[in-house]
Design a binder for these strands. Sequence first.
DNA 1: AGAATAGTGTCTGTCAGACAGTATGGG
DNA 2: CCCATACTGTCTGACAGACACTATTCT
Lengths: 239, 239
Amino acid sequence: MESEEQYLKNYDASRFPSPIVTVDSVLFTLHEKQLCVLLVKRSQHPFQGLWGLPGGFIDLQQDNSTQATATRKLAEKTGITPSWLEQLETFSGPNRDPRGWSITATWFALIAWEACQPHIATVSDVQWCPVANLESEALAFDHATIIASALQRLRQKTMYSLLPVYCLPDTFTQTQLQEATEAILGQPVQRKSLIRRFEASGMFEDTGQSVATGARKARLWRRKPNIPVHLFSRNLLPE
Amino acid sequence: MESEEQYLKNYDASRFPSPIVTVDSVLFTLHEKQLCVLLVKRSQHPFQGLWGLPGGFIDLQQDNSTQATATRKLAEKTGITPSWLEQLETFSGPNRDPRGWSITATWFALIAWEACQPHIATVSDVQWCPVANLESEALAFDHATIIASALQRLRQKTMYSLLPVYCLPDTFTQTQLQEATEAILGQPVQRKSLIRRFEASGMFEDTGQSVATGARKARLWRRKPNIPVHLFSRNLLPE
DNA sequence: AGAATAGTGTCTGTCAGACAGTATGGG
DNA sequence: CCCATACTGTCTGACAGACACTATTCT
């Protein structure tokens, strides 16, 4: 009987046909009260010239997880790592990639628009696309489906957490959080409800500063470091 | 400039090193008020002889998604397809499989114990392991981590849906649902709260039959066909 | 009748929705 | 001083928790 050591020495990974494996990310941000998603113009086949999600192949030498691949690819396109990153579904099948049976591990990310802008402004193959305009864009692969799944996740989590803060700059006002929440949900929310949650979450601290946006000054807040996202036991907007 | 057609004709998927790709499932059931998970004894290296999750390689000819792989492997071990199946996280990295850089798409499934028993009773390499006994089991790969993730998902969903019914036979009593819920959450729940949700969900219909379990007869219910799982806007047991 | 299980009535507490009311700072 | 924006007070309604109560069936 063969030992595990011997088995591993003789193991040839290429013996079995393997699917094409990729990693793709859906990075959202907020800009001018619009929820936007990051798209990259494809410079290579397949779907050359179309817009698609940032992503690509795993680098088996460098990446020690698909999360590392996602982070690396996002950093290439935005110059930074997103302030929120979590795994979404994995999509697979024989027909979603014309090159053959494929599987893509997808990630869902949030970032402040301001944080990426310095880098994105310098390149022409990366754009923020408002989700409202997605219908008129033809996207590569099944990326429209992946974005729809990410949007659903984002909306769901916005109902029972304050996740939208990860779309805001380091310091922000309660009104900005409200606007972010409303842009994501596509409908108004009660400011009072949001502020009750804001206080109950224990996730934020007052910077002591304030900013004028026209009339009365608004207090500036920041996320406390190393505090996990608070999950509420009730949803906003329960229909 | 190369056309996409030409590019695809010349494309050789084996040009790039590819990770090992597998699919694994965490199938839960309820037996004697205990939440159990399906384990399979590994007949092959690596981890030969240890218990692990049911799963394996994608059959690129037969399977048209990782869901098909999960269903196929579960059917091999239990004789049937689970009544609930949804995707969990995908785990990846250079060290989780001694054969090399690997990725496993994992699925989370529920089934009634009674439905599998005829098949499972006939084989010796498959067992239901109560989750309470998992600590003392050495499992293959990172399967303990995968089960922990599945358990967390199950508990979370039990708080805001009636998912535990998918661990019950086709017809069941409200008391059975309560016991399932309590076994999953590991603590008692208010029967009244559960029944309020049961009625509000619109997911069930009375069979007209009833069953005696010692004293007063209990009504037997069944899931209405083709009704999606109802999600409540509040959690049970909000701490 | 008594025991055990099935199922209901109803009070309290929590928190979201609604919206009126107060505070602050720029013209 | 006016008004826009920031922020607070407080009432209502929905629904979970708690637990006492009634109903049914077996011995």
